[in-house]
């Protein structure tokens, strides 16, 4: 059995060398998209970026949510959650409605706008490598262990320990532990996360719950609605019929009287 895996990215350890960026490009056979990796951004050909905020460097990539919005919103189930924890995408199923891009709380999925048969593109946490027993290309490339790959429970432990033992260096929050219901990418930072461009104030509840609360009302609406409409049809028809019969009998009476 594979234990759920994940990545821990520690901003305080990142030196902004771009090894993860290059490693990811190489592993996924992605073409060069920018002269300077620090000014690149996520795109159909870039699954992870390193952004500079003063002295800090912040990685952006798919967060691999526990209960991903993309998996829940996709009408054809092109997204799925792998046993490894990665969120995977199957371009053969995709119809290109782009609801995943609209719904993602981290605004991660990118589209091949230039192609006539476009796909959604994003990090898949090197799912093939993991299944071969390797670690992700970005974690392997990282010279400072700013990106750590491992079992989720161990990563959470490490993250908590770092914050506890070095209160001065860390902003006391593990980004990704509870954001949007929790994800398989955890981030530690010396400063509040919105200063590094991470989406702030995400609800702790998984995003798909927002939709489920409406969707679960569908069966009762159909059931009650169907019975109500059927009943109303029968009732109003009956009412009209009685009214008509009464009308006729009154007419009959009038005839008799005449």
């Amino acid at each position: 059995m594979l234990k759920p895996k994940g990545l821990l990215f520690d901003v305080t350890l990142c030196i902004g060398c771009g090894a993860c960026y290059d490693g990811c490009k190489q592993k996924n056979n992605l073409p060069k998209t920018n002269q300077n990796f620090l000014s690149d951004h996520l795109s159909a050909n870039t699954f992870t970026v390193v952004e500079q905020y003063g002295n800090n460097y912040a990685r952006k990539l798919c967060m691999h949510c526990d209960e991903p919005s993309c998996v829940s919103v996709c009408p054809v189930g092109a997204f799925s959650k792998s046993k490894t924890g990665a969120v995977l995408y199957d371009g053969n199923k995709c119809i290109g409605c782009r609801y995943c891009m609209q719904a993602c709380p981290h605004k991660v999925p990118r589209y091949e706008w230039g192609k006539t048969q476009p796909r959604v593109r994003k990090c898949n946490m090197c799912d093939d490598r993991i299944k071969d027993g390797k670690i992700t290309a970005c974690a392997e490339a990282c010279p400072t262990e700013a990106t750590l790959y491992g079992d989720m429970d161990k990563l959470i432990e490490i993250a908590k320990k770092r914050i506890k033992e070095n209160k001065r260096n860390y902003y006391p929050h593990i980004y990704g532990l509870h954001e949007a219901g929790g994800s398989h990418v955890l981030i530690l930072s010396p400063v509040p996360f919105e200063q590094l461009g991470y989406t702030p104030n995400l609800p702790k509840e998984p995003m798909p719950m927002l939709t489920m609360r409406a969707m679960e009302k569908i069966p009762p609406v159909v059931g009650v609605g169907g019975i109500f409409l059927g009943g109303m049809y029968w009732l109003t028809k009956r009412k009209n019929q009685i009214a008509k019969e009464e009308n006729e009998s009154i007419k009959d009476l009038e005839k008799h009287e005449n």
Binding site: S72, V73, C74, P75, V76, G77, C97, T211, I218
Partner: peptide, 10 residues
């Protein structure tokens, strides 16, 4: 290809 959790599917 069904995904009954999706509003778009419905």
């Amino acid at each position: 290809m069904w995904n009954i959790h999706s509003v778009m599917f419905e």
